[in-house]
């Protein structure tokens, strides 16, 4: 019985137990590391939205109004029709306030993209400003950011954020809505930004701290064509790209409906594997469906980052009350909402 005194090594059982304990510890640790990473990305993302809100407010200080949502061919100012830079939206006019003065100067001096009829379209421009990546417009939680495309082309910059066009669905006694309120490409869906909008902060009668200014979206197939997915600022604006709608909750399973979705198959529809609820999108043009809208979407757990009209950043849960959300999206609905 001298074995016990001269024992040097470990038995197999002891080794297996140690290995099992280590495995369990690693198993506990790994998800925690991933969560920390996502929390950091979410913090960066909310900081980006804060910067965007500051840019919009600085524009308001300079011009006494918020930037336009977008404009398209045929729009007029003081009865004079625009001929230059059709489809311009808030993103371009805010460039100087996002430390992109050089890109803005290039943009204003760009003479490319003019058609035979004299009209200039920004999606046909070829200057360097079109591919310039604006750092604060990219959400680090989205593996596809910084994006490209969503304006018919495959190279121009696509951001992760867009402004709020509004969206409220109960007109009287719970009847269903008209397409005009839903459609972000229509004249005024009720938010702080829409076609040819010039909203002043004082026009936001619900109070700027109760009204959504901007939120985020998901970049689908990066670098493919498509028109109008959220953030496709270089030409996709009239097809829905400039804004999101509060008609449905963030990360809804309801389809985004833009002109054409990136990566849509022959059925005109597409989803993103791994995105919350698949981030579904249907091509309104291919399917001949009326109305254009994007909903707020993100890869953050349980909701989206959003910034209110007063510049405060909030995390909006997917599970919040839809009516409250819709009332938050509109600037002067007069509806009192709790839980804002």
């Amino acid at each position: 019985m001298f074995r016990s005194t001269s024992r040097r090594g470990f038995t197999l059982i002891e080794l297996l137990v140690v290995i099992a304990i280590i495995a369990i510890l690693i198993g506990l640790l790994l998800p925690a590391v991933q969560k920390v990473r996502e929390a950091a990305a979410r913090a960066k993302c909310s900081n980006n939205l804060k910067q965007l809100a500051l840019a919009l407010h600085n524009y308001h200080d300079a011009y006494q109004k918020l930037p336009l949502g977008f404009r398209d061919a045929g729009d007029k100012e003081n009865n004079v029709a625009f001929v230059d830079r059709h489809r311009e939206n808030w993103f371009q006019v805010c460039l100087p306030y996002m430390e992109q003065g050089a890109a803005y100067n290039l943009y204003m001096a760009d003479t490319t993209g003019r058609n035979a009829d004299g009209n200039q379209y920004i999606h046909q421009m070829t200057g360097a400003e079109v591919t310039t990546i604006v750092p604060i417009m990219n959400c680090p939680s989205d593996g596809q950011a910084p994006g490209k495309g969503a304006n018919g082309g495959t190279t121009s910059f696509q951001g992760s954020y867009a402004v709020c066009a509004g969206g409220v669905s109960w007109t009287s006694n719970g009847t269903t809505t008209t397409a005009g309120q839903l459609d972000t490409a229509s004249t005024d869906p009720g938010g702080m930004f829409y076609r040819m909008s010039k909203v002043r902060i004082t026009d936001v009668q619900d109070g700027s701290s109760n009204t959504l200014m901007a939120s985020e979206g998901i970049i689908r197939k990066n670098g493919s064509g498509g028109w109008g997915e959220l953030g496709g600022f270089w030409g996709g604006a009239p097809h829905g790209a400039y804004a999101f709608s509060t008609f449905q909750l963030p990360n809804t399973s309801t389809w985004d409906r833009v002109y054409t979705c990136k990566g849509a198959d022959s059925t005109g529809r597409t989803t993103v594997p791994g995105a919350p609820n698949g981030a579904p999108c249907e091509s309104g043009s291919t399917l001949n469906l009326p109305g254009r809208w994007n909903f707020a979407r993100s890869y953050h757990t349980g909701g989206v980052n959003s910034v209110m009209g007063d510049g405060s950043v909030r995390f909006i849960q997917n599970s919040m009350d839809l009516r409250t959300y819709q009332a938050m999206g509109t600037r002067s609905d007069g509806i009192v909402t709790s839980n804002q």
Partner: peptide, 28 residues
């Protein structure tokens, strides 16, 4: 053959969509 079905629940019209493929669908 290829279509979409959307259920809009409640007075606010909370939307839930699914794809119709060859006449069948499954929605949450």
């Amino acid at each position: 053959k290829d279509g979409s079905i959307t259920f809009k629940v409640g007075p606010a019209g909370k939307g839930f969509s699914a794809t119709i493929k060859d006449g069948s669908y499954t929605a949450q």
